[in-house]
Design a protein around this nucleic acid. Structure first.
Lengths: 183, 183
DNA sequence: CAAGTCAGTTCATTGACCGAACCAACCCCG
DNA sequence: CGGGGTTGGTTCGGTCAATGAACTGACTTG
């Protein structure tokens, strides 16, 4: 949201959090990053966000220490954006929002979350009913739920069809340059 | 945020939740409502939100079934805005955001939350360590924390100084009409 | 009736978002 | 080397929302 001057005067941790991650699109970028999206173009097509806004959000989130920009190849220089611990710590907030959305706005669950170590589905607040303890984000398996309606035209959406570990990088088929077309 | 057309295409409960409560100021209005704020003017001065935006948000939230508009006196007709169950259900998401804000952005806790029945401070995810179970929002006591820096000019801020039950309506001193001034 | 409160609405200005176009670096193929 | 293609941006005009200040209208009290 970036309430600018007004949020700054708020005597509240919630307001300060929203000052950083409350802007339009920001939490969805972080959600995608948790799902394993790391590259500019993957965010772009999966979110349907305007290019300028995405560039702005990635820069802001990097400056806030929520994402880290990392060179992952040199030949054509390419960077990826990876969540830091500070970004990963937003998982409980995102999950709480998602649960509210499903319970209150109706619909089948789109994705379900499981403790990878023991195969139990997570409780609403992220604990494992079998183990009793909170589950680290890296130990969470995400599986498609009955309400999921993927977009076949979107490589990221396709990559998220199978069960996946959270934060595990998505491999969209690199289409490489200059492929001659069939016709 | 109200991503408008774009959020609608998102195959995700988080996006649908943000479509409803993600706009600027919206979550802060709901936070205040959880703290017991109910009246237009109290939201106005406590949040420092532009009047037009507040009116818009209250109307939207009422239409979404998150707030309920209620006539509480007739002589000058006055309405108050009270959280519905759907609105109260946002408490875990707001708490998760607040915890992230405090842990990641630094600072002392502004407010602490306790199980009213047994006097134990709540765990980060809203459970009572003593009783073991989740605590209903109405059974939560809010107490000022070390980081709280109240604004003496704001009646709501003053009313929130003492320990309070969540959702318990705030009584700002009704100043009534037409008071002659000291000078 | 004057003065003041509460809950808005109206309005001009500013800023953010949007979509499309454009650009630069690079890579491969012929 | 040139053409075509991809990635990751930036630039630009149009539009839409937020902001702050002023105004309205119902009401009440002195």
């Amino acid at each position: 949201m970036a309430l600018g001057k007004d949020y700054a005067t708020q005597e509240c941790s919630i307001a300060r959090a929203l000052e950083v991650v409350g802007e339009r699109w920001t939490l969805l970028v972080i959600r995608d990053a948790l799902y394993g999206v790391r590259r500019y173009n993957d965010f772009l097509v999966h979110l349907g966000i305007p290019r300028a806004v995405l560039a702005n959000r990635l820069q802001t989130l990097t400056a806030e220490g929520i994402l880290e920009k990392r060179r992952y190849q040199e030949s054509p220089p390419r960077d990826e954006y990876v969540l830091t611990d500070r970004g990963i710590a937003l998982w409980p907030a995102l999950r709480a929002l998602g649960i509210w959305g499903r319970e209150q706005l109706g619909g089948e669950p789109m994705r379900t979350f499981w403790h990878a170590d023991c195969g139990t589905e997570l409780s609403p607040y992220g604990a494992c009913p079998t183990c009793g303890a909170l589950v680290a984000v890296r130990d969470i398996d995400m599986r498609p739920g009955p309400g999921l309606d993927p977009d076949p035209a979107d490589p990221v959406s396709r990559a998220l069809l199978g069960p996946r570990r959270l934060l595990q990088p998505i491999e969209t088929e690199q289409q490489g340059p200059a492929r001659r077309r069939p016709a």
